[in-house]
Design a protein around this nucleic acid. Structure first.
Lengths: 160, 160
DNA sequence: TGTCATTAGTTTAGGCTTGAAACAATAGGG
DNA sequence: CCCTATTGTTTCAAGCCTAAACTAATGACA
């Protein structure tokens, strides 16, 4: 009876709570790794993950980017980027200039000190991730990467 | 030459930046879903995801739990749970009492209003997740779930 | 040129999160 | 019975994050 009831509630396309369990497991993996990274960045480099994310984005754009472009590439709000960049400028890791084309726009770029700091951190970041994800063999890694790609598409499909 | 160099740098066990790419994709999926959930909870229920998480944890323990147990089950700090529970008590969704065994311990439990609110939200949460993850078929879902389990184990293996 | 919508960025108010420090109650010797 | 370490919880400072309100510059158009 209970089994029938469940089947009926799920309907033809239903998945019970499988999707929710999948989501919770995904979230759990992401949270654990993120919290560990956060702690490591604080301990070894006295900085934070969001600041590292900004440095990484800037490292990919040697000529500098506008605040808006940075905000979009990091998927965080404009105001948040403003605050993060301010601290990086204060610490001498980023520089802020005006665009010659558009007086509204600010161009933010990595300083040499910022680039050096980023490279040191990126290497450690790489090693930590390799260690934590090292339990998957090559086949599993490729599989998981592909499935996450499908998941990403599925998520992107529904945007109201 | 470049290919050889890369191979050499990676070493026998190396994976290039495959693990980092995998991590970034995983993080991206988690972030997108989490931000969407956050917006939905705010729009439709005028509440937040962390508050929902607390309600969900309390729903699983009808007799109530101590703050410490709640903190551990949610993987957040003690001080954080204190603040979240205070807002739930203020809104009449949770009640806070003392343990008869240990006068230091507080026991937090769902109120009837809290249970009702949670059930409404859980249903919507379920539907949203089903919709966003619906692009995966049953086989893919099982595969992904299994691989994330392996990943979880791999992450848990290394805890310094 | 004058008006007005749009766009870039900052500011502000409010919520989440943590780690450290403070407090209170308990438990275990001596 | 006291002293001390431990445990459960709260408080606090600092940083992240967002949405909304705001300023300033741009661009379209009459």
């Amino acid at each position: 009876m209970s089994a029938l009831r469940e089947k009926h509630e799920d309907g033809a396309l239903g998945t019970g709570r499988a999707n929710v369990r999948l989501w919770l497991r995904l979230l759990s993996c992401a949270m654990v790794v993120e919290k560990r990274l956060k702690r490591r960045f604080a301990e070894r480099f006295d900085t934070t993950l969001p600041r590292f994310d900004v440095l990484a984005a800037l490292d990919r754009q040697p000529e500098g980017v506008t605040m808006g472009a940075l905000s979009r590439s990091l998927l965080v709000s404009n105001g948040n980027v403003t605050a993060l960049v301010q601290t990086l400028v204060r610490d001498g890791w980023a520089s802020l200039g005006s665009s010659p084309d558009d007086r509204r726009a600010s161009i933010v770029a990595l300083t040499p000190a910022g680039r050096t700091a980023f490279e040191r951190m990126a290497e450690a970041h790489h090693e930590w991730i390799d260690k934590w994800l090292g339990g998957l063999d090559g086949h599993e890694r490729v599989s998981l990467y592909g499935l996450l790609g499908k998941l990403k598409d599925s998520i992107a499909e529904d945007r109201p």
